[in-house]
Simulated assay, not measured.
Amino acid sequence: MGGYININGKIKMQDEALLPADNRAFRYGYGLFETMLFRDGVIALKDLHWERLFASMQQLHFSIPKLFTKAYLEQEVERTVQKNKLEHLSRVRLQVFAGSGGLYEDASPKPEFVIECFPLEKHILMLNETGLVTGIAQELHKSNDALANLKSSNALIYAVAAQQAKANKWNDALIRNAQGNIVESTIANIFWTKDNTIYTPLLSEGCIAGVMRQYVIRKLRQQGFDVQESSLDAQILWQADSIFLTNAIRRIKWVQEVDDQSFSNHFIGDIYHSVFHTT
């Protein structure tokens, strides 16, 4: 992990970071974050990241200063990565949050931010030859309300599901919504294939509005693939030909097993190369 972090434009050693007890992100989970791939001096899919972040800030009623722009945040990301000497390949976590003071009903907060970066190995970008082993998280149901699509700081359901995955020796856990439909994993959006059609849950089902999800759908449709957004209940899952997960860092990862049922990687190689053949 890089030794330097960026707090509101000031780069400090990680162990110098301090969090006031009345910080609203700490108290209420009032914040958002973007996990971005930084590769060869560039933020991958940066326009999609900034579009999502600023739309989400508006939805959470942040009062955004004029100088708090996409260009400013991009500059601060670059400064932080360069300070950590991780320009070639790294994972960047940008968290935007409400600062200190105030209760639930207080006036719209001004955004504060923290930027962290972490080294990556190039193999994480490749399609996996050995499929992921996963299972469906138990006794957890994600709400599919107006905030469900946000990549928010309130990640309790993902943390508990990840603990279940670790206890079961899974690589990841799948999460259901209040209706019992599968919507995503702890760190990724989910796709499945059936008879050469590619499916992914509707945003209205409650999944995160993933940047890679959006990019994969767009790229595949541009190249003539049939991509549909639909609900994913257990019966549909068990009848799928193949399953894969997507996020901004790991790109596309084949899921070989869900709760002891196996799925092939048929078609997933074609999907991966169709999306990333030029990147």
Rank of each mutant, 00 (worst) to 15 (best):
residue 166 K to V: 04
residue 194 K to I: 01
residue 61 H to G: 02
residue 208 I to H: 01
residue 126 M to R: 11
residue 266 H to T: 14
residue 9 G to L: 06
residue 3 G to H: 10
residue 123 H to P: 04
residue 250 R to Y: 10
residue 265 N to H: 13
residue 69 T to G: 02
residue 41 G to A: 08
residue 202 L to T: 01
residue 215 Y to C: 12
residue 27 R to K: 15
residue 270 D to L: 10
residue 268 I to C: 02
residue 55 A to Q: 15
residue 4 Y to C: 05
residue 67 L to A: 15
residue 194 K to W: 03
residue 24 R to T: 02
residue 158 Y to H: 13
residue 265 N to G: 06
residue 147 L to G: 03
residue 175 I to G: 00
residue 112 E to N: 14
residue 222 Q to L: 13
residue 150 L to M: 10
residue 166 K to I: 08
residue 128 N to T: 07
residue 247 N to L: 01
residue 214 Q to Y: 08
residue 4 Y to K: 11
residue 32 L to H: 04
residue 252 I to F: 06
residue 157 I to K: 02
residue 115 I to L: 11
residue 59 Q to I: 08
residue 275 V to F: 04
residue 201 P to M: 02
residue 93 R to F: 03
residue 92 V to W: 01
residue 186 T to M: 01
residue 170 W to G: 02
residue 119 P to C: 06
residue 12 K to N: 09
residue 83 K to Y: 08
residue 159 A to Q: 12
residue 247 N to Y: 00
residue 170 W to P: 01
residue 176 R to H: 05
residue 156 L to N: 06
residue 250 R to N: 15
residue 104 Y to Q: 12
residue 254 W to T: 07
residue 64 I to T: 09
residue 179 Q to L: 08
residue 22 D to R: 07
residue 44 A to C: 10
residue 143 S to V: 03
residue 251 R to G: 02
residue 262 S to N: 07
residue 55 A to E: 14
residue 131 G to E: 00
residue 259 D to R: 06
residue 148 A to I: 13
residue 13 M to V: 10
residue 80 T to I: 02
residue 101 G to W: 06
residue 227 V to E: 01
residue 215 Y to V: 15
residue 236 I to V: 14
residue 12 K to W: 05
residue 148 A to R: 01
residue 215 Y to M: 12
residue 11 I to W: 09
residue 182 I to H: 04
residue 255 V to P: 04
residue 234 A to V: 13
residue 156 L to M: 13
residue 115 I to F: 09
residue 5 I to W: 09
residue 172 D to Y: 06
residue 91 R to Q: 11
residue 23 N to A: 03
residue 57 M to E: 03
residue 4 Y to W: 14
residue 7 I to Q: 12
residue 177 N to Q: 06
residue 155 A to G: 08
residue 231 S to A: 14
residue 76 E to S: 07
residue 244 F to M: 03
residue 60 L to N: 12
residue 112 E to R: 10
residue 273 H to V: 04
residue 216 V to C: 05
residue 7 I to K: 15
residue 80 T to D: 08
residue 31 G to A: 02
residue 137 A to N: 00
residue 30 Y to R: 05
residue 249 I to N: 10
residue 146 A to V: 14
residue 238 W to C: 03
residue 77 V to G: 10
residue 29 G to M: 08
residue 137 A to T: 05
residue 176 R to Y: 03
residue 81 V to I: 03
residue 241 D to N: 14
residue 114 V to R: 00
residue 81 V to G: 00
residue 35 T to P: 01
residue 278 T to A: 13
residue 265 N to R: 13
residue 151 K to E: 06
residue 231 S to K: 12
residue 124 I to K: 04
residue 229 E to Q: 15
residue 263 F to N: 00
